[in-house]
Amino acid sequence: MQLQKIDKARYRKHLNIVIVTSILTLAISSLAIAQGLIHLYPDESGSHFHWNLLGVVAGCLIVGLTLSRVKLHDFMREVYYVWQLKQVLNQIQRKLAKVKKAVEQDDVNAMIVLNYYYQACRHLWQLDDNTITLDDLGVWQTTLDSKAEALNLNLKMEDFDLALLQQY
Rank of each mutant, 00 (worst) to 15 (best):
E78T: 01
L165D: 04
N52T: 14
A58T: 12
R77F: 07
K71G: 01
L89V: 03
I33W: 12
R12G: 00
V63D: 01
G64P: 09
L67R: 07
E104K: 13
S29I: 08
D135E: 12
F75G: 00
R77P: 00
K101V: 08
P42M: 07
L96Q: 13
I23L: 13
T66K: 03
S45E: 13
L54G: 03
I17A: 01
D74W: 03
V103A: 02
W51E: 09
T143S: 02
L144K: 08
L54K: 09
I28P: 05
V103W: 03
Q119S: 04
L40F: 13
S68D: 08
D129T: 04
S45V: 09
K95I: 07
G64Y: 03
D161N: 14
V79K: 05
V18N: 13
L124H: 11
L85W: 13
D74P: 09
V70D: 05
N152L: 13
V79W: 05
A58G: 04
H48D: 08
L3G: 02
V79I: 07
Q167R: 12
V20P: 02
V99M: 05
A148I: 06
E158W: 07
A148T: 03
N16G: 08
P42A: 09
V20H: 06
G64T: 10
C121L: 15
W125H: 15
L37N: 10
W83V: 04
L37G: 11
T131P: 00
C60L: 14
Y118H: 06
L15H: 11
K95T: 07
L114M: 10
R77H: 03
T133Y: 09
D159L: 14
Y117C: 01
A34D: 05
E158T: 10
I6T: 00
P42N: 12
L24G: 11
K156N: 06
Q2F: 00
S45H: 02
L96I: 15
F160H: 00
N152R: 14
D161K: 15
S146C: 14
N115W: 06
T143R: 15
L127N: 03
N152P: 07
V139I: 15
V70W: 02
S47Y: 14
N109P: 03
D106A: 07
F160S: 10
K156W: 08
E78Q: 13
L26T: 04
T66Q: 00
I33F: 13
D43P: 01
I17E: 05
A34T: 10
K147S: 09
S45N: 15
Y81C: 07
L65A: 12
A110F: 11
L24K: 02
R69F: 14
F49K: 03
V99P: 11
G46S: 10
Y81G: 14
L24P: 01
L165Y: 07
G36I: 11
I33Q: 06
K101L: 06
Y11R: 09
Y116Q: 06
I33D: 07
N16T: 11
G59K: 01
H14E: 11
C60A: 08
V113L: 01
E158R: 08
M157P: 00
R69V: 12
M111W: 10
E158F: 00
S30G: 10
H39R: 14
N52P: 04
D43N: 13
D43R: 13
A32F: 01
T133Q: 14
V63A: 01
K98T: 09
L151S: 09
Q93W: 09
L165A: 05
N154A: 10
H50P: 00
L37D: 04
L134S: 10
A110P: 13
T133A: 09
V88R: 07
